Amino acid sequence: MRILVPVEKPMGLESPISEEFGEAPYFAIVTDGGVQILTNEEVMRSFRHKWEAIVALKPDVVITKEIGRPAYQALRSRGVRIYLAEGATLKEVLEKLRRGELEEFPPELVHEPRHRH
């Protein structure tokens, strides 16, 4: 299983969860092989839309505090489970996921895309 979580700093399992999704400074990809942390620039390069870059990472699960409609719809249409991040660190949200304590991301919290100009 590939789990994608936006984080603020590249601190492994102690990485703080980002308040942002597409604008997060880093993305943690968690697999059975461990934790890989990529910068936002590494993830987003060569993609026109941020949601395309996220989909290209092929997550099975996304854990986030917020998400825009395009990314939400693109991920859900591919069968990706999206959960609301409840916890301060990557380790905390992963433990809650494994214990079944995270709720599916509420559709009413999905927001319209924010474009920076």
Rank of each mutant, 00 (worst) to 15 (best):
L84E: 05
S18W: 05
E112D: 02
D60Q: 00
E23S: 09
E23N: 11
T39M: 09
A28P: 08
A56Y: 10
L109C: 03
E103T: 06
E95R: 15
P25S: 07
W51H: 15
E86F: 03
L109V: 04
I29R: 06
L102V: 10
E108F: 08
L94N: 10
K91P: 11
W51D: 15
L94Q: 10
E95K: 15
A85W: 07
V110K: 11
G22H: 09
G33H: 08
R81I: 08
R76E: 09
S18M: 02
V61N: 11
P6E: 04
T89K: 13
M11F: 04
F47A: 01
E108L: 04
S18F: 02
G12W: 01
T39Q: 07
P107E: 15
E42A: 06
I63P: 10
R81A: 14
S77A: 15
V5A: 11
E112N: 03
E92K: 14
V7G: 06
E20Q: 14
K58P: 04
R78H: 12
K9V: 04
G68M: 02
I29N: 04
V30N: 06
Y26P: 02
R69H: 12
E108H: 13
V62L: 07
A85C: 09
E19Y: 01
F47T: 06
E66Q: 11
G12Y: 01
N40E: 04
E92C: 13
E20K: 12
V62N: 02
T64S: 15
E41Y: 10
E14Q: 13
E8W: 06
D32P: 06
M11A: 08
G22C: 12
G34V: 00
T31V: 10
K65Y: 03
S46M: 00
R99N: 13
E66L: 08
N40Q: 14
Q36R: 14
L90E: 14
G12T: 03
L38N: 05
R81F: 08
I67F: 02
I67M: 00
E42Q: 10
E112Q: 05
G12S: 03
F27N: 03
Y83C: 11
Q73M: 15
L109I: 04
R98Y: 14
Q73F: 12
E41W: 12
A74L: 04
E103Q: 05
E66H: 05
L109G: 05
V80F: 10
G33R: 05
S77C: 09
A28N: 11
L94M: 13
R48K: 15
H111T: 15
L57E: 08
Q36V: 12
T89M: 10
A53D: 01
V80K: 13
M44D: 01
E19V: 01
G79F: 10
R69D: 12
L94R: 12
A85Q: 07
P107F: 12
P106R: 02
T64A: 15
A88C: 02
F105K: 11
T39L: 10
A56I: 02
K50S: 09
